[in-house]
Each structure stands twice: as C-alpha cells, then as structure tokens.
Amino acid sequence: MSDISHNHHKTHGYGVYFLVWFALMTLTGITVAVAGINFGGLTIATALIIASVKTYLVLTIFMHLRSETVVFKVFIAVAMFFLIISFILLFTDYSFIVRN
C-alpha cells in the first residue's frame, strides 16, 4: 500500500489555467448576450448547455479530474446518474398532471 501513497498527480501550468479562465469568461459573455435573444423554449436549453460546458472545463482542468484515475470518473458518473434519474422520475409525475 505504501508505495502509492505519495503520488503527485499531474497538474497544469499557469498558462493552461489562464486559457481556461479566458474560455469561461467568453462563455459567460456569450450566455449573457444570448439571453437577450428569445429562442422560445430553446432559451433555457442554450443557457444550460453553456453552463454544462463551463462545468466540464472547471471539473477537468481546475479540479484536475483529467489526471485522476478512472475510479473518480466512475464516482462522478454515479452521482450524476443518481441526480439525473431523480429528475427524470420526478417529472414522470409533474409532466403528466396539473394538480391545482
């Protein structure tokens, strides 16, 4: 066990972080700009897709998920699965009924 304890996993240089930061800021700009235009039902979808892309960047680069082992990725998949399935199952109720 002791052999693997001191592992320094790879992290990124300053430049990569600045690049990611720049991407995040740009995406924020896009999402604000786009919010003004009315896509109808797609407005929310656009906002959430952009937010997901930003989250992906933060997770993989800032949070170093890219250099973690597969176990961590499976963990995140499990947590996300639990959350998403809760949403889906909950909406099997709310999508098909109006209670008031």
């Binding site: 199952l89 099997t92 009924i97």
Partner: peptide, 16 residues
Amino acid sequence: LVWAHHMFTAGMSSTS
C-alpha cells in the same frame, strides 16, 4: 428509484 410508492394515494400522475 422507487421512492414514490409511498405516495400511491397522494394523487400522482398515472404515469408515475
């Protein structure tokens, strides 16, 4: 995935 079986008389949608 089965939580709502506590709510069968609560008036959920039939799909649920």
